[in-house]
Amino acid sequence: MAERIELRVNDRNQVVEVEPFTTLAECLRNQLGLIGVRVSCNQGDCGACTILVDGQPVNACMELAIEAEGRSVTTIEGLARNGHLHPIQQAFVEHHGMQCGFCTPGMIMVARALLESNPAPTEQEVKEALVGNICRCGSYPKIITSVLSAAQTMREG
């Protein structure tokens, strides 16, 4: 019993046809081609699929697509503007805040939500914000450096 729903994704209105059992991650990846919504554990334990729904971070694997009807969704694909990386993305590039890159979009989305509510986080606050995002390559120290550096760049405007 597929249903047509409207979503606003990365500032564009989209109409998708979803089943009640389609997760938001499946919908964004398979129907809208947003592969930056990384799915690893598929049950909320790794944070790789983190996106923003109405500005708040959400594990896209744990939400049904149909639940998000009418909401505004931001994925990693919506961060860069006109080919210019967001300062958080730029900081991850410069500071090597990644190795294999699978966790990177989730890390950046959580960091973005954090810096929105707390523009000058301490190192400990950054660590605690990212506690649910697993980096199996162990790039955590450089990920933390990237977030702190981005925070500074964003504060300095």
């Binding site: 909320g44 944070g47 983190t50 708040q56 971070p57 959400v58 594990n59 744990m62 939400e63 959580v110 954090l114 605690e128 914000a129 506690v131 649910g132 995002n133």
Partner: peptide, 9 residues
């Protein structure tokens, strides 16, 4: 409890 993202949900 869980991650900050999870606490949001």
């Amino acid at each position: 409890m869980g991650s900050p993202t999870m606490r949001n949900q």
